[in-house]
């Protein structure tokens, strides 16, 4: 599949933003005062909104995007839009109240957390629902998206909550645990994706043409000499060439560097500010991971084109 930058940015950035919102909604300890409340809210909402805005750049008609809120009964993409907007609206009330009264309304916060998790889940389901892309079509896809979103959220909340202080060992161990679990799940996802080929799902050029019973079917001529929307969008090949190297890069920045930073903090009682570095490294690792998520995925229509 074509790895569109806007969609990669959307899934990573809004995943982190909604993860942060989920933690803020749970009422985890944060510094007092309106400024801290404002900055935390701005970063969480900013990440979520920037991601959502970037996804609208992917649209042919962004001015009609409001129509995407109408079909939540059947469409995961529509559900995603509805969940995101409702959650951000709820956080608007929660965050403003927090900034101006320095108090957080617990029940509203829980709703925000629930909405954030639901939003990330619906994002993942846009991909996981597609039978046409066997690598995505698995329960593991939403699990990975959720784990990464929560890991980002916990890291951000720790970097803010213990601002100017030394990160506590318990916080650091939670982050370490999440990093290990999330990337372990991703490695299992990769393994599963490698095994979930179109062929493993029973599709090949023989079933695509229905002629497999007669003999071995092979494409002789494409319909056109040039490219078309389908070949550009779905018969994309660059990702598979360097997949293994890129997986290592994703693991290096997404897992190894943040884990080392956390371990150093446990050993040397360093300032919590270093957690921001760990977060940035994780973010970069996730961009690579998400690029691969698209670039490596093989779509059923490729059976008609190669």
């Amino acid at each position: 599949m074509h790895p569109a930058i806007s969609v990669i940015f959307f899934t990573v950035s809004s995943g982190a933003g909604f993860g942060f919102l989920a933690m803020l909604g749970l009422g985890v300890p944060m510094p007092n005062g309106p400024l801290a409340a404002f900055i935390a809210s701005a970063i969480a909402v900013g990440l979520a909104v920037v991601g959502l805005l970037s996804s609208t750049f992917h649209l042919g008609h962004p001015e009609r995007a409001w129509r995407a809120f109408t079909q939540w009964r059947s469409s995961w993409l529509s559900r995603e839009g509805v969940c995101a907007v409702v959650t951000l609206g709820l956080y608007g009330v929660y965050g403003l109240n927090w900034i101006f009264s320095d108090e957080r309304i617990a029940w509203l916060g829980y709703l925000v957390s629930f909405g954030s998790i639901l939003t990330v889940f619906t994002t993942a389901m846009i991909y996981a629902q597609l039978r046409t892309v066997p690598a995505w079509n698995s329960w593991m896809t939403p699990v990975c998206y959720l784990l990464f979103s929560i890991t980002c959220g916990v890291m951000l909340v720790a970097a803010f909550g213990e601002w100017n202080r030394v990160a506590s060992h318990s916080t650091l161990s939670i982050i370490l645990g999440l990093l290990v679990v999330a990337w372990a799940m991703k490695i299992i996802w990769w393994r599963n994706a490698d095994l979930s080929t179109l062929q493993a799902r029973g599709s090949d050029t023989g079933t695509a043409t229905g002629l497999g019973g007669i003999g071995n079917v092979k494409l002789l001529e494409r319909p056109h000499t040039g490219e078309n929307y389908l070949t550009r969008e779905m018969v994309h090949k660059v990702g598979r060439k360097h997949a293994n190297k890129l997986r290592m890069i994703a693991l290096g920045f997404g897992a190894v560097v943040p884990i080392l930073i956390c371990l150093l903090q446990i050993l040397f009682e360093m300032s919590v500010a270093f957690l921001s570095l760990a977060f940035l490294s994780l973010l970069f690792g996730l961009f690579v991971e998400r690029w691969l998520f698209f670039a490596e995925a093989k779509h059923a229509v490729s059976l008609y084109y190669d």
């Binding site: 599949m1 992917h58 649209l59 042919g60 008609h61 962004p62 009609r64 995007a65 129509r67 995407a68 993409l77 846009i126 597609l130 039978r131 046409t132 892309v133 599709s203 929307y229 389908l230 969008e233 779905m234 779509h299 059923a300 229509v301 008609y304 084109y305």
Partner: peptide, 15 residues
């Protein structure tokens, strides 16, 4: 009504 999101083309196995 179409916003040009392209998801339907992804969902169709037949191109």
């Amino acid at each position: 009504k179409c916003i040009g999101c392209g998801l339907c083309a992804w969902a169709c196995p037949y191109g």
